[in-house]
Every structure is written in C-alpha cells, then in structure tokens.
Design a protein around this nucleic acid. Sequence first.
DNA 1: GTCTATATAATGATAGAC
DNA 2: GTCTATCATTATATAGAC
Lengths: 207, 207
Amino acid sequence: MKSAPRQDIHPDSRAGEILAAAERLFCRNGYQGVSMNEVAREAGVSKANVFHHFGSKEELYLEVIRNVRSALTSEIMAIAQAPGGVEQTLTQVAEAELRHLFQYSDQVRLFMRECLEPGRDKALAAKVFGNTFAELVASLSGAQERGEMRTDVNASFPVMVLVAACVFFFQHAEILRHIPEADPATTNPDIFTRELVRLLVHGLRPA
Amino acid sequence: MKSAPRQDIHPDSRAGEILAAAERLFCRNGYQGVSMNEVAREAGVSKANVFHHFGSKEELYLEVIRNVRSALTSEIMAIAQAPGGVEQTLTQVAEAELRHLFQYSDQVRLFMRECLEPGRDKALAAKVFGNTFAELVASLSGAQERGEMRTDVNASFPVMVLVAACVFFFQHAEILRHIPEADPATTNPDIFTRELVRLLVHGLRPA
DNA sequence: GTCTATATAATGATAGAC
DNA sequence: GTCTATCATTATATAGAC
C-alpha cells in the first residue's frame, strides 16, 4: 500500500534481481497473471525473501512500473531533434517511434494494459506518454516556424495522429494479418512509415 | 476446453442471466480478475449452477466473447454507406466509429485486452475488426471511383489511420487530459473529428 | 538477508441430495 | 436445474530459525 519513494535499487543486488524477474513476468502476463511464487522461482530466491524486500505484491508491481517508466522515457528523448524538412522529420519520428515500440514491446504492453485497467492511476502513464509527446510536438513546431508546415493546425494534433497510427500498427500487426481487406502495405513497417508520412503531408486530395 | 458451437442461449433464461453477469464482470476486470464465485453472486445463483451451464471458466469466457462479438459487429455494418464527398464520408465514419467505441466502451475494452494478452486467439478479434474494416474500405473505394480521392493510395490505408486515431482517442482520452502539451482540441470528440478529417483530406502542406 | 515451515483465505471444480 | 457441502490446489502473507 505505501507508495513512498524507495531508495534506489542497485540492479546487481538481490532486490534488483527480484525486480528484474518480476518485470519479465508482469510484462508477459499482467498483474493478476503472476503469482509471488512464480516471481520467487524466476528470481531464484525464496518467496519469503521477495516479501522481505517488497512488502506486498502491489508494492512490487508499482516498483516495476516506476522502473519501466524510466527505461521508456530515457530512450526517446534523444530522437526527433535532427533538423530537416517536415517529410524527413515525420519519417524519422515514425521510424523512431516504431523501433521504440517494438524494441520495448513487453514493457509497452505492460503500460497499455495499465491504461486499459480500470481504477488504476493514469498519472503515471501520462508521464511516460507526455515526455515523448512533448519532444515530438517541439520538433514539429520547429517545422512550422520554418514555414514548412501549415500553421493553422496545432502541432500536437498531427503528432497525436502519427503516434496513434504507430501504436495501432504495433498493437494490431498480428491481427491485421488476419484481415483480407487490409493492404499488405499496412503490415510492413517500412512501407507503412512511407505511406503514413505521405498521407500526413499531402492528404487525400486528388493530384 | 470444448469450443463447440453452442445452442443459442435465450437472454431471459437462467443461463442468459449468468452470461450477462459474466459479461459485466469480465468487461470490467478481465479474465483473471474475475472468479466464478463472483459470477455466481452477480447472477444470483449458486457457483455449482454456473459450472452446470458452462463447464468451466474458460468456456464461460469464450461464450461471453462470442456474444460480445455479435453485438459489436451488428451495429457498425449499417454506417458509412451514405453517399457524399470524401470529407463528408470520413466525417461520418469518424463520428460513427467514436460513438461506437464509447457506447460499447466496456466491451471494446474487453476486446482490446484480448488483443494484448499473449497466447490468445487473434482470429476472433480479427473477425470483429475485419467486418467493420471491410465496410469502411468499401466506402472509401467508392470515393476513389468517383474521382474524389487520390487513387495512388490503397483505400485501406487511410481507413486504418482513421480507425487508429479514433481508437487512440478513445483509449487515451483520460490520459491526454493529463498531458499539458496536448491541444485541448485533442480531448474534444467533435473538434477532434473535424481536425482529423481536415488533416486526412488536405495534409500538412502550407497553403 | 535468506531460508523452511506454516497460517489463512480464496480459487476452480465436483459430489450428491432434491 | 438448482442447491449445500466439500475437494484439492493455489494464493498472499507471516513466524521464526540461522
């Protein structure tokens, strides 16, 4: 229950090993899909030891969430800052976002589940999304200032659409493959990125 | 285990009441977040009775999924068939999709969780998405044939982006409100629809 | 800090009376 | 079809030795 800020946990300490084991399991199976028995076995320690370091299952889970959050945010802060035209910027952003989603797919899924679960704290998830979001918006605002993009649209909007498309692609890649009406282009990351940017930049107006 | 096609269950039968109770609970808390004890209590019957009608928890869950699927697909098949320009069609589609998502939010969330859960059957979810997807693609293809839309883009792509944006909006509405960089426009369904369609139709090119 | 052993409650599922 | 009573198993969590 107590969500007090915890001393930093060294990854090579025993507590760190338990935390890492818990992250693997929670990422794969969600909160209720994991038992403290499994965590102990995965970490190679006794169950009582897990309870010694983290007072309860809930506390352990929250600690995992906090940990994953750092990993997710620290990565994307460096991207989308390279100069270039809108098209190039959007392409890089989409590529980085997709790479990011698939690289940390397990952790991303953990967060998405957290978003869907009712009654959980959305502020934590908002922090994760918010950081990357702000970075991308700033990047597009630069393009607006350079006259490379319409200024009558809030930069946050295309960012949201771009992120939405990437997230949707990530979430439903496996499902889209089962839908005959879906263009094969919508299942290939590279073609997807190219088409997405083209759509965002040029719209659907006939040429 | 046996997923054999079941005789239709009358909603006003006892089995129907149990099914409805199970749907409410599974929608709210997911598969592992619900116990057969709770289902029995929610339905106002004994636990043994639940096991009598549905042989196991897994079977009950699958029956709920099948039931929800019918509800979700039968609704959206009637939309997006009204004639009109691309802009109008996209607007109607987006509005209908959003209305649909929020109206059946609990059931939609159930399906989204099902997509995130590893090792589950994606074919079922694909059927739900696939039906609505095909309808929307057909609608846009008509616009292409009438020369109202670029033909060098597969109609399924903008549909996917449109759906992605709507789903993202639905999934993250609560979270977006916590992000200061997000435009207020991205939290209002009507403004969101208008901006989305404008972006899709006209793109980001400076005027 | 780490362990074995245990307490206590809840789980999915069944038996058998009515 | 519906129930009470019960099964075996597992869950979170604790006690206490080392």
